[in-house]
Amino acid sequence: MDKFTTLTGVAAPLNMINVDTDKIIPKNYLKTIKRTGLGTALFAEMRYDEGGRENPDFVLNKGPFRNATILVSGENFGCGSSREHAPWALLDFGIRCVIAPSYADIFFGNCFKNGILPMILPEPRVNELLRFLLELPGAEITVDLPAQTVTGPDGKADAFEIDAFRKHCLINGLDDIGLTLQKEAAIKAYETTAATSRPWV
């Protein structure tokens, strides 16, 4: 997993609430047997017409947004299916950070497992960023994860909250299986106790 420290890049505005993972990556792309190469499938049903041609009105098909590394969207982003193909597709397109007022739990957790920062900002600030990005296509946002600040195209810097453990894993590109295996003795002890207290499981 790639480390995440700082990021300055074009931010794309996706001005919708409840963006579900079926929208992020539709079913026809779930027959894949690889985690990579899903960038072309990102938001496919909004991005392409039935014939596979680009929809010129969709944000990621517009000039500078083709190179977006940050996505700004509305509340409850990533709701629905647990498919990890959603962060895989975002990552393969080049998105390393999503900014929204809130996320669905499973998607939120899946992002961290793939080196993507799902940043939470208050709704008024997200709406302000969406307006800026719509008015100034190609405008950049700067994220400083160690300092926990995000600077918009207006030059305004905001602090953002992030759980210390997840921050640590993102900055160091850590996979938590390794960390958990260090708790082997505790897991074993738990299993020994549970074998007596709940032997039917």
Partner: peptide, 20 residues
């Protein structure tokens, strides 16, 4: 509760999950 693919690997390997 539902989990993502990476977490499925974690559970297969450790029979446990880090949760808040």
């Amino acid at each position: 509760f539902g989990i993502g693919s990476s977490e499925v690997t974690h559970v297969l390997a450790t029979q446990s999950l880090w949760q808040r």
